[in-house]
Computed example of a mutant assay.
Amino acid sequence: MLVWLAEYLTQFESGFNVFSYLTLRAILSVLSALMLSVWLGPWLIRRLQRLQIGQTVRDDGPQSHLSKSGTPTMGGVLILAAIVVSSLLWANLENKYVLVTLFVVVGFGVIGFVDDYRKVIRKDPKGLIAKWKYFWQSVIASCAIGFLYSTSQLTAETALLVPFFKEVMPQLGILYLFLGYFVIVGTSNAVNLTDGLDGLAIMPTVMVAGALGVFAYASGNVNFAEYLRIPYLPLSGELLVVCAAIVGAGLGFLWFNTYPAMVFMGDVGSLALGATLGVIAILVRQELVLFIMGGVFVMETLSVMLQVGSYKLRGKRVFRMAPIHHHYELKGWPEPRVIVRFWILSLMFVLIGLATLKLR
């Protein structure tokens, strides 16, 4: 939005041309999202407390979590608002990649909001029925990936990049639709499963978003793309602004979500953030690298799958409790130790993912 205004004002004052620089707009996006989150956070927390929108804690979970009952939830609204506002301010809204990403942010945010609303306001412990949740996730993901496939103009936009290999870039064709669907929906639910401890999900999300911003910038710059031997995607550079907004909004939310949390993001935040990471990874053609960088999300998801599968097949549990962060809590690890160690693991995974840019 401000990009258009700056372009108009450039004809009167050349100094406004500085806003055409992508890196400057990314910095401004981080700062605006961060300041917006920190500024609105106290007001939102008070509002949620007044409306008695508090977290319900499972009786069969770790006993240390019982004290969290009643803590305001649905704070993800703050994250999404900061992301959308910062993106609208500093991104080029004529870029279809930006518009698709914002569509996914808002769409999955609405699904999460309805789920949280049913749980917290209507006191329905099941929230939005699972089949309807997956149905609407599927609808939004299919619309996004279908639009991208139908409007793709470069062969690179539908090629699969295999990490650590320079020349392995098979064309996906119609398989692009299936891969994109599973990446968006899968990442959405993976982040949702990870969001079980104070700050556990938001910090890996911030790290992965920052790294995807690096991939977006490199892919959108013809010189960097040629040097790194990755496909040149002219539209992808603008996603750096959106990734920067996620980083700023996430850090601003962490100000209130760090242990002991003053507010939880709820499904409105976790479902939307996961889906957003997924769609950005698709747009910059780094689906497999997302699998690496989101290693913590993968661990959490696999732990649930193993737990459920083992119990159904053998009648035995693999972990004391799933997702796996609860397993370590029940082993006696203090919550802050689990959180920080998972952050460290996430940083390692992200660095490995970034290394794929050069190790080819």
Rank of each mutant, 00 (worst) to 15 (best):
Q11K: 15
N17M: 13
L31E: 09
L34C: 08
S37Y: 01
S37A: 15
G41V: 07
R50G: 12
L51V: 12
D59V: 15
S67Y: 13
P72T: 04
T73A: 07
A91E: 07
N95I: 08
V98K: 02
F108R: 02
D115Q: 06
Y117N: 03
R122A: 13
L128R: 09
A141L: 07
G146L: 05
L148E: 03
L148V: 13
S152K: 01
T155H: 14
T155P: 08
E157A: 09
P163Q: 05
M169Q: 12
M169F: 06
M169V: 10
G186Y: 12
G186R: 11
D195V: 04
D195Q: 05
G196T: 09
G199R: 04
A201K: 00
A211N: 06
F215I: 05
F215S: 04
A216D: 03
A225P: 03
Y227M: 10
I230M: 08
Y232R: 02
S236A: 15
A244Q: 00
A245Y: 13
G250I: 07
G250R: 03
W255L: 03
F256Y: 15
S270P: 01
T276H: 10
F291I: 15
G295E: 06
V298A: 04
T301G: 14
M305E: 06
Q307S: 08
L313A: 10
G315L: 11
G315V: 11
V318L: 10
Y328R: 02
L330F: 11
W333F: 14
P336Q: 11
R337F: 08
V340W: 08
R341Y: 11
A355L: 14
L359N: 13
